[in-house]
Design a protein around this nucleic acid. Structure first.
Length: 433
DNA sequence: GCAAATGATTTATC
DNA sequence: GATAAATCATTTGC
């Protein structure tokens, strides 16, 4: 009724195809002719308008009867076309204003995100940015592969729900649009409804439904974000390294205790051996250094354990190195392949090796792994020569490896590796830092 | 269930 | 950008 009244009120103040309708006055009463022909026509129009305005206030039967009377009225075609013209102009101005609206940036963001996640748009075989990130973070371990596939399965689930709901909305939108169009067509018998008005109504319905779609997209985005955070939050998914990996890392740490800063190459090597990422290696060494420094006494036992463990290997390696050096040319370096680490660090490759009594092993060079094993072996020998307690100054893994500031000694100017028997001029094998 | 251990993250510093 | 130090969050062992 609002539109109709508004339109009729508007109509009362405008020219109807060149005929003025009682300039802005209220509609005339439906009865009583004023004699002149022009006046009679005005009276007809006023009569029709009055009937239209009051049609909804009447009972259904009365309304039906009035509808029929209006349809048969001789002025109906003329009035109908004028009303159509006015409505069309009104509709155009409204639509024009609406069509100038720029695309909603929020909706664009949501669309972009859903597209990036592989929820909307063509299916990418479950692939998504987050899934790729998960895969990258996994480091290729089987556990993470399972989690990755789990993530993909859940993402597919979200995708399916999203598409099902979207289809439902589209279907409902179409059904509702058809329904409204039918109603309008029905109404067009009693009041003027142009095709453009129908189009406008369809536009309104679609906008309403697209706002619902936006809510759906928002919910989907939230679901994806929750899924991502659950699967990619590494803290939540912390796993202890395998025993073997921890052993490898510890071996390296204690055999390079005077300077436990593995080079990039060493980190990569360790990462490969332990089936973890390079950053995990860095994290491990960072944690280890700080925790060792904080509580050296506590780590003494562990240090001794690893020293003893590698001692036998070290002995073999040193023996092999020495023997090899004697048999071959004295200038030919031995890479020491029997050791745990064969790192291509140029700084580690050829070092002046000290003999086990602390004197410099002049003229011979061995691989870094051998050097580190020598450190360990020397420590074990020292231990057998009198190891007091964890805090004793004679201990290989005593705080004397740390400088006055609590940090490890500068790798560029290192003193003796670990042994109290060492000369002051020896150079540590690990120059990575 | 709790404390210790441990891997990851954050912040500050160099 | 690498590291130290503090902290968080989870796992592990009892």
């Amino acid at each position: 009724m609002d539109d109709q009244s508004r339109m009729l009120q508007t109509l009362a103040g405008v020219n109807l195809a060149g005929h003025s309708v009682q300039g802005g006055m209220a509609l005339p009463p439906p009865h009583g002719h004023e004699g002149a022909d022009g006046d009679g026509r005005k009276q007809d129009i006023g009569d029709i308008l009055h009937q239209i305005m009051t049609i909804t206030d009447q009972s259904l039967d009365e309304a039906q009867a009035k509808k029929h009377a209006l349809n048969c009225h001789r002025m109906k075609p003329a009035l109908f076309s004028v009303l159509c013209e006015i409505k069309e102009k009104t509709g155009l101005s409204i639509r024009g204003a609406q069509e100038e609206d720029p695309p909603d940036p929020q909706l664009m963001r949501l669309d972009n995100m859903l597209l990036a996640e592989g929820v909307s748009g063509p299916e990418k075989g479950g692939g998504s940015a987050a899934a790729a990130a998960a895969a990258a973070a996994s480091g290729g371990s089987s556990d993470n592969s399972i989690e990755h596939s789990d993530y993909r399965a859940k993402l597919t689930q979200i995708r399916q729900i999203y598409h099902t709901e979207l289809e439902k909305y589209e279907q409902a939108c179409n059904e509702f649009t058809t329904h409204v169009m039918n109603l309008l067509r029905e109404q067009s018998r009693t009041r003027p409804i142009s095709p453009k008005e129908i189009e406008r109504m369809v536009g309104i319905i679609h906008r309403k439904f697209s706002s619902i779609q936006m809510q759906l997209k928002q919910s989907t985005c939230e679901a994806v974000m929750i899924l991502r955070s659950r699967f990619l939050d590494a803290r939540r998914k912390r796993r202890n390294f395998s025993k073997q990996a921890t052993e490898i890392l510890n071996e390296y740490f204690y055999s390079h205790l005077s300077n436990p800063y593995p080079s990039e190459e060493a980190k990569e090597e360790l990462a490969k051996k332990c089936s973890i990422t390079v950053s995990q290696v860095s994290n491990w060494f960072g944690n280890k250094r700080i925790r060792y420094k904080k509580n050296i006494g506590k780590f003494q036992e562990e240090a001794n354990l690893y020293a003893a463990k590698t001692a036998v290997t070290a002995a073999h390696a040193v023996a092999a190195a020495v023997q090899n050096n004697q048999t071959n040319s004295p200038t030919t370096p031995n890479s020491g392949s029997s050791g745990s680490f064969n790192l291509p660090n140029s700084g580690d490759m050829f070092m002046n090796m000290q003999s086990l009594n602390g004197d410099s092993y002049q003229g011979s060079q061995v691989g870094a792994n051998v050097q580190s094993q020598v450190d360990t072996l020397r420590h074990v020998i020292n231990q057998t020569g009198g190891y007091n307690d964890g805090l004793g100054g004679n201990s290989l893994y005593s705080p004397h490896n740390l400088n006055a500031n609590g940090g490890w000694q500068d790798a560029t100017t290192p003193s003796s590796v670990t042994s109290p028997t060492e000369g002051p001029g020896s150079v540590h094998s690990d120059t990575s830092n």
